[in-house]
Amino acid sequence: MKEETCSHTWEMVNVQSGYIVTENCFRCNKTATSFSAGEWPPMEEYREGEHFWNIMEVAQTIRFDLTCKACGKLVPLNELAGLMMCTGCDPKCPVDTLMKEMEKSRIWVFVAFGFFPVDERTQLSQEKIAILEEYFNQRRKSSSSTIRIVSSEKIDDISRCFAEMIRDVGMLSLTPPATE
């Protein structure tokens, strides 16, 4: 089947487990996130030109690409750092407004995040976001609701957002749970 005419049945491929690493440079106070594949997350601080990167947080996550079973089209999703479900914590946020509107027709809003610092190479295109949305809705076969994925650029002020990215925080922790 030709790519142009195919209605696409998406499938997750090239699934790689690894870590999402948040680093901070204490000289310029810039924050950067990156994906690190492999068994061990980076642990040491390091120098890169003017920057002095310190690891702030490491969480387990996966990265993946999507491919169409029918036509074989491959959509690399290198830019996707994670997904977050809008929990409506900031009434001023445009995503929250969208969420409230969509909730009536049982559409749940998820936000797709790229990497920091923000530039073209690190952000997902609108087209890829649409494909991602298609993929997850195809997987929700029996569902009476649908999902909607929007770009993180839509968030007004990230510092007011309390939602959490879907990733495996605390997985590596060896400390017993603090409270029972």
């Binding site: 997904l83 977050m84 998820f110 997850f136 929700r140 029996s142 999902i147 959490e164 990215m165």
Partner: peptide, 12 residues
């Protein structure tokens, strides 16, 4: 944690 709800919802 709350993430469980997000992930469960994503896959239904």
């Amino acid at each position: 944690h709350k993430n469980v709800v997000s992930a469960a919802n994503l896959i239904d």
